[in-house]
Nucleic acid binder design. Structure first.
Lengths: 297, 297
DNA sequence: TATCTGATATACAAAAACGAATGAGCGAAA
DNA sequence: TTTCGCTCATTCGTTTTTGTATATCAGATA
């Protein structure tokens, strides 16, 4: 193995090959050609002294070594992207790209209007919205700002607590016409319930607060809150969703409002190093302001 | 500004220029030549559309934009180094580089013998020991394994609790001959005390447990535990250090053993992705085993 | 003042990397 | 079977990048 550090570009090429599964596809993705990509991989293998791929006419099959290296390369790519975002957002004016991570429901149902007015006010601001329920974001620089439902434990992060977004039991009017309106929590046993597919930390917390919910087995399951929301709207049964979102649809009815209300703690989080960059500052403030107004309703 | 993503090598060049302060020095560091480094900077500036340095006959002065980008570039470099470590440690055998982060006292007084036997057993293992009291290590991939005094809050980390390393008050025999031996905690007011320069989280915690210590103003201050240890050994006064370390020196005397003992919680921490790599596994186990034995004494 | 040492900038030749074109292997579909 | 589409490997000419050598500028020192 040679002592020379490989070109960092080789890492980018390596990652692209891992993602695309073939030299040709990676070449298309990178704007290079297949021989060049092949040479990069050859060079990298030569330097680290290990075979990374088994070549085949169907493409490249990653070796175990390559699989081990992949997360590192992804991390590298995320950092390079973050650097580029930081670079394009330089200066005192609000410009460049800001990448926001949010949960599905928040990202699709709540944020868009806020982002619209934000973008209206700052035309040079490019907003990337990453919708995902995974939390692996800020520290790995996969996003600049995140809207999270758990208080982050890390102290390198700037956190602003928004408050509890109220959740409630809801169903479509059509469903209730057919199956009747539950009068007490126990009545829910006789209904079609919409719930989670797998046990998540959030589900366990909810069970703890409202033990009765634990007894009922949902007959309609999805891990996607968005899908649950869609099922409620389609009249599939009774499920939990944000009170404010349900109120927008006149056909959705809140059930057992006094017996069941669950506030969903919400935080806007930003990496500390982004504090001074105008585009992040502005976006952070807009999200905090918008979400505070949303919670107050 | 062009749409093409810059070569990742430009980031490396940029960072080196930031660190070295001139194109020529960076070129020497990178094994390139000054014109090449200059061209890299030119190209990067062209792509991001901002000036990064003000050229002068004395060297390059970074602009504000460059200062903003520096932490990102450092992060990138740390990741690239981590990737390379992971690459060189591939395979089932224990080989490659493992980077350990530890506090000054632990790293210099406690770990070396453990590392010696570890390296004896695994000759192909290269051990990097990063001695620093800063905690910003594992998540930023500045190290593979860390010995820490605080329980990490992050769940992507594998943590093994070692237990409390006992701390005690100590002084050199020579000092005690001159100034007398304190019989009770209150006597410490009349002594030359060795303590911390600034208030740290650790100091506040210590104050809380032993309020009497708070009253005494140290006359010999240092933020470096190692320097404090050296001062104790030199007979400067009375200070806090690890009981086991003091015991090694027959001229050091433990004081007020019944009145003052502070266990220093210790953890060995590793990034989860390193779990399967042999070199990290072996090193982790060796550190845990060695430190457990050390605490038991 | 003259000189020496550091720096950046420029010009031109050498070296390295790249892309286009081609050949060959494998699998799916006509 | 034949064809088409995908893949990787190889060759060769060209482009790009790099290094060498040189000019120039600023500051410290004799």
């Amino acid at each position: 193995m040679s002592e020379i550090e490989p070109s960092w570009d080789f890492y980018r090429t390596f990652l692209t090959v891992m993602k695309e599964g073939s030299l040709s596809a990676a070449a298309r993705d990178l704007g290079l050609t297949q021989p060049t990509v092949g040479r990069h991989i050859d060079a990298l293998e030569g330097i680290i002294g290990f075979q990374l791929f088994i070549r085949s006419p169907q493409g490249l099959i990653p070796t175990e070594a390559a699989l081990d290296l992949k997360p590192h390369a992804e991390q590298l790519a995320a950092n390079a992207a973050a650097l580029l975002r930081a670079a394009t957002g330089q200066g005192k004016t609000v410009r460049g790209t800001v990448r926001i991570s949010a949960s599905e429901v928040i990202g699709i149902e709540v944020l868009p209007p806020m982002l619209a007015t934000l973008n209206e006010r700052h035309p040079d601001l490019v907003i990337e919205l990453s919708v995902s329920d995974q939390v692996e974001d800020l520290l790995r620089q996969q996003a600049d700002i995140a809207v999270r439902m758990v208080a982050p434990a890390q102290d390198a992060l700037i956190t602003r607590r928004i408050g509890g977004i109220p959740l409630g039991l809801h169903a479509h009017r059509r469903y209730l016409d057919l199956h009747g309106v539950p009068e007490k929590l126990d009545d829910l046993r006789d209904h079609r319930m919409i719930g989670f597919d797998r046990e998540s930390a959030f589900v366990r917390a909810m069970r703890k607060r409202v033990p009765l919910l634990g007894i009922m087995r949902p007959t309609l399951k999805s891990d996607s809150n968005l899908a649950q929301m869609a099922m409620i709207r389609a009249g599939c049964g009774i499920g939990v969703c944000q009170v404010e979102l349900a109120r927008r649809d006149p056909n959705l009815v809140r059930l057992l409002a006094t017996e069941f209300e669950l506030p969903l703690e919400t935080f806007v989080v930003m990496h500390e190093t982004m504090k001074t960059t105008p585009r992040c500052r502005v976006t952070f403030d807009a999200l905090v302001e918008g979400l505070l107004a949303y919670v107050r309703k």
